[in-house]
Simulated scan of single mutants.
Amino acid sequence: MAKLILNHVSKDFGTGRPAVNGVSLDVREGGFLALLGPSGCGKTTVLRMIAGFEAPSDGAIFLGERLLADPAQSLPPERRNMAMVFQSYALWPHMSVADNVGYPLKVRGVSKDVRRRRICEALDTVRLADLADRRPAELSGGQRQRVALARCLVTQPDVVLLDEPLANLDRHLRQEMEETFREFHQRSGATMVYVTHDQSEAMALATDIAVMSRGELLQVASPQEIYARPEGRLVGSLIGRGAILSLAVPAAAPRKLEWDAICALLGASAPDGGVLADVLVRPEDVRLGGEGAAARVRSSLYEGERYSVTLDLADGQTLRAFSRERPMPGDTVSVTITSAWRL
């Protein structure tokens, strides 16, 4: 295996705006990268260029030192040693689980003995060895997705590409399959690139997250880094459930703000010639009660273990908070912001 490198990759379908515009990425060997963004942001187009289903209009794609594609040439998908898992499982209904998993090896002319051994290894990895003789119709949705994963693994690919593979599963199965994907990555050691519009999936699964919008790459970082220290208003709004306040933060102030500084800035106007800064406040950093700034409760939504509360500050800006007790809409409460991040 080797590092997957995208060097200023673009894709223009002639619609007036590039679907992908100058994306540069290094996916480390054995890493799990999530491409995260809203529908139409270009993440699936990036995945299809990596797979070889689309050729880049500009830039280049490498696997280690091996050139996979640039505007002048593009290796076909079958010569890239990659495997792809789609939203649909794409299993042959008339074949057993074992035959579905071994089909790519059969096409390549791999001997029966080697094929049988690698099928058993792949099914053991996804914990389906005891279902090898069943047909897809006899399996649950989660089990079918595991068969699709085993079919990827049996070819011993350098890179596994996943295009929103959990989109067709219900919430319970999604959580089960997230654990399967984590285990699959740990046991296989494969480099994985995972496309999703669901930030919770990206946070739960990936070692690194690449956030995209309108064909451009906004930030690449670990889940912890991208949650705590997002770069720019768009990333801050896409990741988590925070509120973005406009505050007159001095240019020399640190990026991370504590309550004393925040309290002094609430309701303050920008100095002459100055500008207001975007400040991200996460709901878990908002405390209700005690001495603090006054806020009016706009709504209070029960989520099972807590209430999700929307608050209006005196200057009309909005905060979000969590509470074990239910504050009533219309109530005036006191809020303290323990920490915030200047975007």
Rank of each mutant, 00 (worst) to 15 (best):
W341R: 01
R241A: 14
D260M: 07
R326A: 14
E29Q: 15
S246V: 00
M192V: 15
V23Q: 02
A55T: 14
Q145C: 13
G240M: 12
S300P: 01
A314Q: 13
W341G: 01
Q175M: 14
R144F: 08
L311D: 03
R320A: 15
R134K: 14
M328P: 00
G64K: 06
Q87I: 10
L257H: 03
L162V: 00
L288R: 03
G102D: 10
L166W: 05
A2R: 02
F86I: 10
Q156I: 08
M82T: 15
R151Q: 11
S39H: 07
V249G: 05
V154C: 05
E54I: 07
A293F: 06
I244M: 13
L166Y: 08
D70F: 09
E258V: 12
L280W: 06
E78K: 12
A204D: 07
G236H: 04
T318H: 03
Q175D: 13
R287K: 11
A150D: 05
A69I: 11
L257V: 06
V309Q: 02
D285F: 14
T44N: 12
R326G: 07
E178N: 13
G40W: 07
G109E: 08
F32L: 11
L288C: 03
A98G: 03
A251L: 12
G267L: 04
A90D: 06
N100K: 08
G242A: 12
M49I: 04
S213W: 10
R135E: 03
R117C: 01
P327N: 04
L63G: 01
A277Y: 00
V211A: 10
E303I: 07
G304K: 08
A261W: 00
K11N: 01
E201T: 07
K256H: 09
N7Q: 15
P271Q: 13
S237C: 04
S111I: 01
L25F: 05
G330E: 08
K112D: 15
E78S: 11
V286G: 04
V333P: 00
I5Q: 11
V159A: 12
N21K: 13
M328C: 07
G240L: 12
Y89K: 07
L218G: 08
E29Y: 01
V335S: 06
L139Y: 05
L123H: 04
L161Y: 04
C120H: 14
I50A: 08
R241L: 13
E179D: 13
V107E: 04
E305M: 13
L257N: 01
T338E: 15
P230E: 09
D124A: 15
L319A: 06
A277E: 14
A60W: 05
C41R: 03
P136C: 10
R144L: 09
E65G: 05
L313S: 07
L301F: 11
L131T: 04
S308I: 00
G274V: 03
V297E: 05
S200G: 00
F53V: 03
V46P: 00
R118D: 12
A264E: 13
S323R: 04
I262C: 02
L280R: 10
E258A: 15
D312Y: 02
V275H: 10
V27A: 12
L162D: 00
